[in-house]
């Protein structure tokens, strides 16, 4: 999911920086309004937690292990706007310190994993949860929020890759950046996430959610905040 440098043309990464910038500004304003001066340490700790979720390898059925992106559960626990900043900071640290994701692609990666994923996750969770206060419905909502949000983010990434041959090619038609056309990039990204990684994300989301809902329901944003 982390797009490296070299795959996206300037025609793609520059506008995506712009879109991410808009979301960062709105998110900082919204959080600042709700949390006032406390927002700095709160966001820093949330970003650290977002980073650490990926450090945990979870045993999944079939004898293997996998780790989640975590943006889905972060959105359920902290709310989508806090998740925008927390996951973005975590992605920026990953790109700068660990070379995980490109510098030019920070805007695109933040848009896919820190904007699309938290909002899809949060709204899928709220939609399926409805008025339920407990039971299997909440677990299903948590699983699907992780599963759907990662799959949608992967599809968006696939579209970003797939439009590169259209946006930037030599006069003889040779692609200059990501080489696969939309007909290959989109199904490839969507299918592998629908069939494998989305399930891992869903499992991690439901596991964590159930633990919180049982032991610390007061800490879960989506269980305590009523949307206007």
């Amino acid at each position: 999911m982390h797009i490296p440098d070299g795959y996206l043309s300037p025609q793609t990464y520059v506008p995506l920086y712009g879109v991410s910038l808009v979301f960062w500004s709105v998110a900082l304003k919204k959080i600042n309004k709700e949390l006032s001066i406390k927002h700095i340490p709160y966001l820093a700790m949330s970003a650290a937690f977002s980073f650490l979720i990926m450090m945990f390898n979870v045993p999944i059925p079939g004898g293997t292990t996998g780790h989640a992106v975590g943006a889905g559960i972060i959105a359920i626990l902290l709310g989508p706007w806090t998740a925008v900043i927390a996951v973005s900071v975590s992605l920026i640290i990953q790109a700068i310190v660990f070379g995980d994701g490109g510098i030019t692609a920070i805007g695109a990666n933040c848009f896919n994993m820190a904007v699309v994923m938290p909002f899809v996750s949060y709204w899928v969770f709220r939609l399926i949860k409805g008025n339920a206060d407990g039971g299997a419905r909440l677990s299903i909502a948590a699983f699907l929020s992780g599963y759907v949000s990662l799959s949608v983010a992967a599809a968006v990434t696939g579209i970003e890759f797939g439009i590169q041959p259209i946006l930037a090619a030599t006069p003889d038609g040779r692609p200059l950046y990501a080489p696969y056309p939309l007909s290959v990039a989109l199904p490839a990204m969507a299918l592998e996430h629908l069939l494998l990684f989305g399930i891992v994300e869903g499992i991690v989301t439901v596991l964590l959610f159930r633990y919180f809902a049982k032991n610390e329901p007061g800490l879960v944003y989506s269980l305590t905040v009523k949307e206007a």
């Binding site: 340490p41 820093a44 700790m45 949330s46 650490l52 979870v58 045993p59 499992i203 964590l208 800490l219």
Partner: peptide, 27 residues
């Protein structure tokens, strides 16, 4: 696998609580 997942979920939840506590202390 199920025990492993429960353990991981517990540790992650603990990290979340720790990060929230640290937030208060740092503030």
């Amino acid at each position: 696998n199920a025990e492993g997942r429960r353990w991981i979920a517990g540790r992650l939840a603990l990290m979340f609580k720790k990060s929230q506590q640290r937030c208060e202390e740092i503030f």
